[in-house]
Design a protein around this nucleic acid. Structure first.
Lengths: 329, 329
DNA sequence: CTGAAAGCGCTAACAA
DNA sequence: TTGTTAGCGCTTTCAG
C-alpha cells in the first residue's frame, strides 16, 4: 500500500480510502489508485485488515478422527456434509477452515476460536464425547454440532431426526412381516443411540421386545466392521431383517450374509442409513433412510450465524424419509 | 497479553517470551505466566502473530464449481480427495482453507495468495480452463493442481496416470473379445482427454479404429448425465462395451442400458473410473480403475511444500490399477 | 478532499 | 533476566 501511495503521489490513508471506495476521496484520485493497484497486482493484506478492524469471516469446520485407529476422514456422508457446509459458507461470503481433531480431545476445537483464527466452530459429529462438547459450549464458544439432540445438552445441534429414522426403518420391516430384526451400530454415539430408541419403540408398538443379542456395536470404519461382522454372524441368534446405521455398514452386512449363504432380501431384509448417491445402484438397490445433506449444511451455517448475532438458537432436527428399494421391499 | 502482563506484574515482552518458551526468561516467571494464561483461557492471537512474523501456515484448497449449472461440490472422488488433502495438511501442521470458485474464473484463486490468507493453492481439478491455470502459474503463485499433465503446461500437476487408466480399461475389454467400445466422458477436461488417448491407443494396438459416434461427452454431474444418456442410447450405433470416466457415470450407464433391455455384462461390459468405496458392492460389482486417493493428498501437499522451499517441482503422475469385478469379467 | 498520527496484538532488537 | 521501543499493514479519528 505504501508503494501505491508513493507512485500515486498521495498518502497511505488516501490509498486506503480509495481502495475501500470511500466517497471522501476525489473520484479522479480514486481511479488512479485503483488502476495502480490493479497493475501492481496488489490486494489488501487481510490479516492486517482483520487485526485493525477486529473482524474475521472465517468459520472452523472440525471433523473428529479416531487417533487410536488412525482413522481418516472417509465416511462418505460426512464428506458430503463438509461439501454442503462449504457451499453454504461460500454463499454467505465466509471462509471455511477445515481441520481434523482427535476425537478424544474435541475440546481442542476451541483453539480456533481462542486464537482468533475463526469466529465460530461447526463440528461434524459428536462421537463419544458429549461431555467435552458440553464443556465447550459452557465456555461461550460459538458452536454448532451436527448430530443427535440428547437430553439436557448445553450445546446446540443440528441433525437428522434419528429417532424417526430408526422408527420408520423398523416399522417398515415389521410391515413386511419381519419379526427378528438386528440392529447394527455403536450406541455410544448419540446419533446411533437415538436411532436405536426409534428401533425399540417400533418393536414395542408391535408388541415385541428388543433382543440385546441381536444388537452389534459396529464401528463406522469399513475395515473394522467387516471382521466384526464375520465373527458375530455365526454365533448370532436367527434374524430375518437388519437395520444398519450407515449404507456402508448395510452393504457389508449384505456381503457377509450372502457369503454365509443367506439371501437378501428373501431371507434377510436390510435397511441402511444416509442414502448415499450410489445406494440406488447397489446390489440389491438399498432401502435406506435419506438424510437431507444440502439442507444440513445451510442449516448448520444459519444456526451458527444466529448464534453470532447473539440470538439464542435452539437445536434443530431435520426431517428424514425412508426410501424403499429392493433390499427391503 | 497485556492483561496477563499486568496480573503477573511483568511487561508484555516477558509474557510473549514466556509463552513462546524462551530460555531468556526466568523459569519461575515463565511458570507463573503460563498458569495465568491457562486460567484466563488465553491463547495467542495468530492474526497478529502472523502479521508480525510475516509467516502463515494456511494453504488454500480450491474446488471449482460450475456456476452455470449451479453444480455444488458433490463428486465423491473429489470429496474423498479433499479429505485426503486435509489429512496430509494436518499431519504437516498446516491449516486448510477450503473454498469453491467459479470454474469459469479459476484465476480468482490467486486472491487467497495475494491477500495473504494462504501461502499457496491446491486446486482440485482443471476443468476446461487449462489456460487460466497457466496464467496463474506465470504469476509466480505457489500452485499445485490435481489433474492431467498436458503438453507444455506451465503449472504443476499431480494426478493419476490417466492415459494408462484408459489404456488398461480398454485393453481389458478387448481381451474379453469386445470390439465396439463406447467412451463416456467430456474430453474438454484434460483428465478425460488423456483417458481417451489411452482408449484410442488400445484400440489401435488391436488394429481397430475409434468410432466418434461411440463417444458421448457427458458432464460429471449426476442429473445431466442421466437424461443425456437416455437421449443418446436409442440412436447410438451398436456397442458391446463401455469405458466410463467415473463410477457414477458407469452406474448410470448400466441403469440406462438395463432399462433398454440390454444385459450387463453379457451384452455390454462396463468399466468405471475412481474405484469408490462402494464400487465393490454395486450391481453388478463394478470393474473400475483405482485411483490412489490417500497417496494423492500426501503427494499434492508434498509437491506444494517443495515449491514453497523454492525447489523446481515437476509434475507427478501416480500409478493406477484396473480392478476387475463382475461388470466386465 | 487529504495527511499526520495513533493503534489493532504481537515480537525482537537494543539497552539496562 | 527484564523492560523499552519500534514496527508488521492496515484503518480511522482529528486537523487542516
Amino acid at each position: 500500500m505504501a508503494d501505491i501511495a508513493r507512485l500515486a503521489g498521495v498518502s497511505v490513508s488516501t490509498v486506503s480510502r480509495a481502495l475501500s471506495g470511500s466517497k471522501l476521496v476525489n473520484a479522479e484520485t480514486r481511479q488512479r489508485v485503483a488502476e495502480l493497484a490493479r497493475s501492481l497486482n496488489y490486494s489488501i493484506n487481510l490479516g492486517a485488515q482483520n487485526l485493525r478492524l477486529q473482524k474475521n469471516r472465517t468459520v472452523a469446520v472440525v471433523v473428529p478422527f479416531e487417533a487410536a485407529s488412525r482413522q481418516h476422514i472417509s465416511d462418505p456422508f460426512f464428506l458430503a456434509l463438509v461439501g454442503s457446509i462449504a457451499d453454504a459458507l461460500t454463499d454467505q461470503g465466509y471462509d471455511m477452515l477445515l481441520s481434523r481433531v482427535d476425537a478424544e480431545h474435541l475440546d481442542l476445537a476451541a483453539q480456533f476460536y481462542d486464537s482468533g483464527k475463526a469466529i465460530g466452530v461447526i463440528m461434524v459429529g459428536q462421537w463419544r464425547h458429549h461431555d467435552q462438547l458440553n464443556a465447550l459450549a459452557a465456555r461461550q464458544l460459538p458452536l454448532v454440532v451436527w448430530g443427535g439432540a440428547m437430553p439436557q445438552q448445553l450445546y446446540c445441534t443440528v441433525g437428522g431426526d434419528n429417532t424417526d429414522g430408526g422408527l420408520q426403518a423398523t416399522r417398515h420391516l415389521l410391515q413386511l412381516g419381519r419379526r427378528r430384526i438386528a440392529f447394527l451400530g455403536d450406541a455410544a454415539l448419540p446419533e446411533v443411540w437415538l436411532r436405536r430408541e426409534g428401533y425399540q419403540q417400533a418393536l414395542r408398538e408391535a408388541g415385541l421386545q428388543a433382543d440385546p443379542a441381536l444388537e452389534l456395536a459396529l464401528p463406522f470404519e469399513p475395515g473394522g466392521a467387516r471382521t466384526a461382522l464375520e465373527r458375530w454372524l455365526p454365533q448370532a441368534p436367527a434374524f430375518d431383517a437388519v437395520v444398519a446405521c450407515s449404507d456402508l455398514l448395510a452393504l457389508q452386512a449384505i456381503h457377509t450374509l450372502r457369503a454365509a449363504g443367506r439371501r437378501v432380501p428373501e431371507d434377510v431384509a436390510v435397511v441402511g442409513y444416509d442414502d448415499m448417491p450410489l445406494a440406488a445402484y447397489c446390489d440389491p438397490p438399498l432401502s435406506t433412510v435419506h438424510q437431507p445433506v444440502a439442507e444440513a449444511g445451510a442449516e448448520l451455517v444459519a444456526t451458527l450465524m444466529a448464534q453470532l448475532r447473539g440470538e439464542r438458537s435452539p437445536s434443530r432436527t431435520l426431517g428424514v424419509s425412508l426410501i424403499v428399494r429392493r433390499s427391503a421391499a
